[in-house]
Structures are given as C-alpha cells and as structure tokens.
C-alpha cells in the first residue's frame, strides 16, 4: 500500500543551485529505502522536502492518507545540550501537549529499546557519540512515527557500533511497523538495511537506478555472507560509479 509519492519534484535554491531535478519516488508502507548517491546530489534536500522543512519548486508530493507523524534523525545528534536525555526525548510529546506523567512510560519504553534506560538523567555531553545518536533515535521514535527519515545517522560512528545500531534499527522497524527512508554513503550499509536502494545521479539529483533487495525485516549477521547480499553490493556500487562518472 502506498504511503507517499513524489512526482517530478525539482528544487532550486535561492543562490541558483539546482539540487533536485525530476525526482520520482513512490514509497510503500513498511519499506526500508536507502538513498545512495554522490555527495551534494540532493539526498538531504529530498528528506527535508518530505519532512516539510523546505518547499518544492515544482512537481507533486502527495500522501496517500493524511500526513503521518514523521521522525527525523539528523546527521548530528542535535540534542539540546542544556537538558538531560529524558527531556530531550520528551520534546516531541511536550510540543504535542502531552503531560510529563503521561509521557514518562512512553519515554522509558523508547529509551529501553535503544539501550539508554540507565542514562535518562545524563546530559548529552556525558554521553559517547554512539549514545548521543541512540538518544536522537529515541527522540525520533517516541511518537511512534509511521515514517522515519534518517540522514546519514551513523556516519560518524565506529564500525562495530554502526553494525550494532544497524541490527537494532531493523528490529525496531519491524516492531513498530515503520517505513524508513535512510540516506547513506555506504554501499554495504544500504545493502544490509534496505528493502530497496535508490541510487541518485549527480546534481541535480534524480533516481537513476532502483535496486530491489528483498522484504524488509530483521537480518542477522549471516545475511552479510549471502551471495544475494554481495550481489546487491556489486550492483549498487556499479550504479554509484556510473552516477559519479556521468558528472
């Protein structure tokens, strides 16, 4: 069932930069879509347009039903440094007018899911990079959004942490029944996580190749050894190379 479709979207910034040209993308419920592409091709811009943080110039962005709650995980953890993890995660609920007492069980639930239950009272600067990212993910999940947008969330983390968070993310997606759109630079990450990989062309960005990987859902580490996974990496990598060469 379709959640959202983008048709012929283009975006030019005030300074004349054409970030997106003729972007077509249709997102079905429950999909895990990775956006892969050269730096500066408009992936972040696409996410911002979907989130409603920027306006499209032309083309149409239509939600199948009403626009659902959206969670957004930025490339930086983007936590409020002046308050603790609990209050950071409380923010989306607070802005919706939910009282603290009502919110507490929900907050503790997401914090448990991301493994930060014991750090609710810690301030962001007392956390490691990976823990900050988890807090940021917890905040994005606390409204139980139907759609989760993530902009290179794990780019700054070490390989082990990144693999662990990847696995956790797939479990969370299955548990909460979310649709995820995930921007990454890593072919391997996208091949492991996605049900579909969309490879962007060089700026102005549009999708030049769409690779179906398989049904979304939790995957164990053995998945990385399957020939299907390696083949996906190969295809994505070739598509990415083409995108860069055409620049």
């Amino acid at each position: 069932m379709s959640l959202l479709s983008l048709k012929q979207i283009s975006k030019t910034f005030a300074n004349g930069t054409r970030a997106l040209g003729q972007l077509d993308l249709s997102v079905a419920r429950g999909e895990f879509i990775s956006l892969l592409g050269p730096s500066g091709c408009g992936k972040s811009t696409a996410l911002r347009l979907i989130a409603g943080l920027d306006q499209t110039d032309s083309g149409s962005l239509t939600w199948n039903e009403a626009r659902p709650d959206i969670g957004f995980v930025f490339q930086d953890p983007t936590l409020m440094p002046w308050t603790n993890v609990f209050d950071n995660v409380y923010l989306p609920l607070r802005l919706k007018g939910v009282t603290r007492t009502e919110a507490t069980p929900k907050i503790m639930d997401v914090l448990t899911r991301v493994g930060l239950r014991d750090f609710a009272q810690s301030f962001p600067r007392e956390l490691s990079g990976g823990m900050k990212m988890r807090a940021s993910i917890a905040r994005a999940l606390v409204l139980r959004p139907a759609l989760l947008l993530m902009d290179e969330p794990f780019a700054a983390l070490d390989e082990i942490t990144r693999l662990k968070l990847n696995r956790d993310l797939l479990e969370l997606q299955a548990e909460l029944g979310m649709t995820v759109i995930f921007v990454t630079h890593s072919v391997y990450e996208s091949a492991y996580l996605s049900s579909r990989i969309c490879v962007f062309s060089h700026r102005p960005g549009r999708i030049i190749e769409s690779i179906d990987v398989g049904p979304s859902g939790p995957r164990d580490d053995a998945f990385r050894l399957t020939s299907a996974y390696l083949e996906t990496c190969q295809r994505a990598s070739t598509a990415l190379q083409n995108a860069m060469e055409r620049a």
Binding site: F72, W82, L91, R94
Partner: peptide, 29 residues
C-alpha cells in the same frame, strides 16, 4: 540557535512562543 534544532522544532509544529521558551531562551543563556 542551532539550525538543526530549529528544524526539529518546526518538524513538530512548535509555536513561536514554544520555540522561544524551550529553544531560544535556553540557548541564549
């Protein structure tokens, strides 16, 4: 204020006074 945080508040539909009270005043401290 950090522009990412401002985007976050926009995403959740914060009113100007909510932005002032919860975001801009603390970051101005």
């Amino acid at each position: 204020t950090d522009h990412n945080l401002r985007d976050l508040f926009d995403l959740y539909g914060a009113s100007p006074w909510q932005q002032m009270y919860l975001l801009r005043l603390p970051s101005a401290l």
